[in-house]
């Protein structure tokens, strides 16, 4: 009788214990999931830049790079003090283009490709213009986005 009882006790304890552990196995990932990650929300196609116009101005070439999705963009200040953003990947062989305020162009050093301030390919090997990004300035903050064509 007592053997029966202890067996029953063991079964109950084992069941209760493993049920508790199973709960832990289910709730641990859930708890981890709801704990906000370092970067608390998704980066949207409208990207908030981590620097301001003043930061770009202080660069010797008046331009900074930003990461947009899987590609890289360049944002620069034109002669007329406008902010412009373009894809920084040369359309010839994917080198990174740079702003040349002295020449008034964007320049790819790999094969001397030249683009106008609007991204048009003006000389050298580049077969296509650079893709333009939309720039929006709200106070100190700069937002860049791809044109969403379907809305």
């Amino acid at each position: 009788m007592s053997g029966e009882k202890s067996r029953r006790g063991f079964l109950e304890a084992a069941l209760g214990g493993s049920a508790l552990l199973a709960m832990a196995a289910i709730f641990y990932p859930m708890y981890q999931y709801i704990t906000p990650p370092k970067l608390a929300e998704a980066k949207l196609s409208q990207l908030k830049l981590s620097f301001s116009r003043a930061d770009i101005e202080s660069e010797p070439k008046k331009a900074k790079y930003f990461k947009y999705g899987r590609s890289m963009g360049i944002i620069f200040i034109t002669e007329t003090n406008e902010l412009k953003a373009l894809s920084a990947m040369c359309t010839h062989l994917d080198c990174t283009v740079q702003h040349r305020p002295d020449l008034g162009i964007l320049w790819c050093s790999c094969h001397n490709g030249r683009y106008g301030m609007d991204g048009s390919n003006i000389s050298g090997p580049p077969p296509r213009p650079l893709y333009p990004y939309q720039v929006k300035e709200v106070g100190e903050t700069i937002f860049v986005s791809k044109e969403i064509a379907d809305e």
């Binding site: 029953r8 079964l11 084992a14 069941l15 493993s18 049920a19 552990l21 199973a22 196995a25």
Partner: peptide, 20 residues
């Protein structure tokens, strides 16, 4: 692996409970 082990244990426990 750990989770499956726990679940398997629980499943076996339940099986014995049902039998009982």
């Amino acid at each position: 692996g750990v989770t499956s082990l726990i679940f398997t244990f629980l499943i076996i426990g339940l099986y014995f409970l049902i039998r009982k």
